[in-house]
Amino acid sequence: MTRVLIVEDSSTMRHHLREALAPDPELEIVGEALDGERAVQMTARLRPDVITMDMMLPGISGLEATEQIMASHPTPILVVSSADRQELFSTYNALAAGAVDVMEKPRGDDSDVNWAARLRSSLRVVSRIRVITRPRSRTDRRTAPVAAPPVPVPVAAPAPRGGVSVVAVGSSTGGPGALTTLLCSLPPAFTTPVLIVQHIATSEQFAVAFSDWLAGQTGRDVRYAADGTPVGRTAGQILLAPPDRHVFVRDKLIRLSDGPQRHSCRPSVDVLFESVAEEFGPSAIGCLLTGMGRDGAAGLLQMRNKGAVTFAQDEGSCTVYGMPREAALIGAAQHVLPPGRISARIGELTSAVHR
């Protein structure tokens, strides 16, 4: 049995959650908390396998409850949130604080047809993820804490003679926190374009706010990629794949596509990495961060085979050591490091050609 704690103040939404879980005999609701304080208390007392967490709660918020739970009794948390802008920012903060994944609440339209089945599937997956204790941080959320300068790591390949044209990054489950650390830890004067595929399995409205949240967390120029933009004109920008669109590079132009899914993903990390390998070869850097599955591993290997410098996140810092593990197993990653140390190496590689 998978023991579920529901945290939700709305009686209507609690009813939806109960009805959604009822058909699965392996999902047992062990408690319902109507506010954040009781959520923390019931987690300590009941020790559920997984929690559904609302963000807008009376008393302490869902975000505060998530932080307290992850600091004292770390438990896999699925945020079940609405697409309200204020709630979205709290949701992304919760993901950065240790919540595993997010699912949008029912919207009362055709998109709700498979909502209950998707919830059950998400809970089964989330409940199996190993989470770690995360000490609570009092740092101002507008600027994420920057990691201390890491110990230098030897480089297996010299810095590209012609410089670094682009950095390609892929991430999935646990990505918001890893991306925040990666981007915050880059040198302040870093101007190499960064193209990112972050899997966010939610509605377009839900995903669009991610760019604003990430910009606020990192102080970087974060925006969604626009079709036809020359890569050479995006210096200093952090470009995200738009919701449900592949992003890739062709003829040094950023392109978007609604082509077939890869690894059940659109956007797909492999689509981005493979195009960067072909277009930029040894003048590119590839980074594969935390995430479930194998998307990005083959593309990272293709980048390495074309002469790019490649990184994968290490197991100890990953929320889910899935995608990076696949990359490490097939020899796609030259370096396996936590995000802050990846940033330090990127900074060294991009500055080496100017020395």
Rank of each mutant, 00 (worst) to 15 (best):
Gln302Leu: 03
Ser11His: 14
Thr143Ala: 15
Gln41Leu: 12
Gln313Phe: 03
Tyr224Leu: 10
Gly219Met: 10
Leu272Ile: 02
Gly322Cys: 09
Ile132Arg: 09
Phe89Val: 05
Ser127His: 05
Arg136Leu: 11
Val222Glu: 06
Ala201Leu: 11
Pro152Trp: 12
Val7Gly: 11
Pro260Trp: 07
Gln198Phe: 05
Pro145Gln: 11
Val79Ala: 06
Ala284Gly: 00
Thr43Asn: 11
Pro135Gly: 09
Leu288Arg: 03
Asp295Gln: 06
Pro242Val: 00
Asp244Gln: 00
Pro160Val: 11
Gly98Thr: 02
Ala22Tyr: 11
Pro188Ser: 12
Ser121Asp: 14
Pro135Glu: 02
Leu272Pro: 04
Asp35Gly: 03
Ala235Phe: 03
Met13Ile: 07
Ala39Ile: 10
Gly281Ile: 06
Pro145Arg: 11
Gly331Val: 02
Thr234Trp: 10
Val131Ala: 00
Val40Tyr: 06
Leu119Arg: 10
Gln68Leu: 15
Arg161Thr: 10
Pro260Ala: 12
Tyr92Glu: 06
Ala157Gln: 06
Ser343Phe: 09
Ile254Tyr: 08
Gly347Trp: 02
Phe311Ala: 05
Arg255Asn: 09
Thr191Gly: 05
Asn305Leu: 15
Ser10Gln: 06
Leu119His: 07
Gln205Thr: 15
Arg85Ala: 14
Pro135Gln: 03
Arg85Tyr: 14
Asp270Ile: 05
Glu348Asp: 03
Gln68Ala: 15
Tyr321Leu: 01
Leu240Cys: 00
Lys105Glu: 10
Ala333Val: 01
Arg124Phe: 10
Ala97Ile: 03
Ala117Gln: 15
Pro150Asn: 09
Gly219Glu: 01
Leu183Asp: 04
Arg294Asp: 04
Glu326Phe: 08
Ile132Leu: 05
Arg250Ile: 00
Pro338Ala: 00
